[in-house]
Amino acid sequence: MTDLSRRTLLGASAAAAVAAPLATPAMAQPRWPARPVQMLCPWAAGGGTDAVLRMSAILLEKELGQPFNVVNRTGGSGVVGHAAISQAAPDGYTLGMITAEICMLHWQGLTEITYRNYTPLGLMNNDAPGVTVNVNSPYRDVKALAEAIKASRPGQLKASGTGQGGIWHLALAGWLNAMGLKADHVRWVPSNGAAPAMQDLAAGGLDFTTCSIPEARAMLDANRARALAVMAPARVSAFPAIPTLKEAMGLDYNNGAWRGIAGPPGLPAPVAQAMEAALDKVFKSKDYQDFLLSRGFGAVYESAAGFARHLAAADISLGNSMKEAGLAK
């Protein structure tokens, strides 16, 4: 505990030292943040996005010296919360976490809002999809599963991991496309998220799941499921034994559920700069890295400019996957 508070003090003074020269030109206005900042989370308390945002908020509070309060504004598969972030007053006191869904919802015609309606501040995490089977499944590695998929008739094998048109559904569609198969060659069974899908996999109701490895982790630890591969450019640091698709079958297909912090469009430059500097520190802090490792979350970071590029690229690639899978409007 003493160690923690010392680090807090160091962090706070360091932040003050960095922020002081930035704030000088705008002396007329009080230095941001002068009061508590509201952080909107489009997903429910207790989930992965909530956890990442709350961890970031605590560390931001240490960096910037004002409380960062997380508010869960849920509903509509994330539409409601994402809309609230982009429509907030651009004064820097309402920010939030946007997730991969922001580059998917508008393709489905569920909202008008796209990634362009935000000021990106920093990408904080990216979880790659995995390929997981029941522990009693005959498929020992991803190659064997791929052979079985190619040999099956369309719709014979069943996979799950999230709802219809969700990020893991797209991972399946993209993987099938990369194998030269149609996106619906394996029938997708929509579920209310990864946990029910993993339960059904363990109960013998599914052939495989494509949710992320951290989501499958407890079942893997319980020896009820076996992870065959991860769809990422490199192995995930928390799970070094699981090969990538490229290693296992020479297929270069990557996808992921990423999460980043953003504000409404037109955020004042001093706010954006202060946040970017603080987020960079937060990501590099030992607390944040320990947190990611203990939960098995993928440690991927992009600065504001990098996050903006990432958003533009993800919007196109996710849109293409959705069109191929017949999910886009």
Partner: peptide, 30 residues
């Protein structure tokens, strides 16, 4: 099921699982 497999029985245990992970008490038979 929450403690053994990380599968939430209801919304309360769903939140509790998040806290367990956060505190390094990862659910599972271990």
């Amino acid at each position: 099921p929450a403690l053994l497999f990380g599968i939430p029985g209801d919304t309360i245990t769903a939140i509790a699982i998040g806290v367990l992970y956060m505190k390094g008490l990862n659910p599972g038979p271990t």
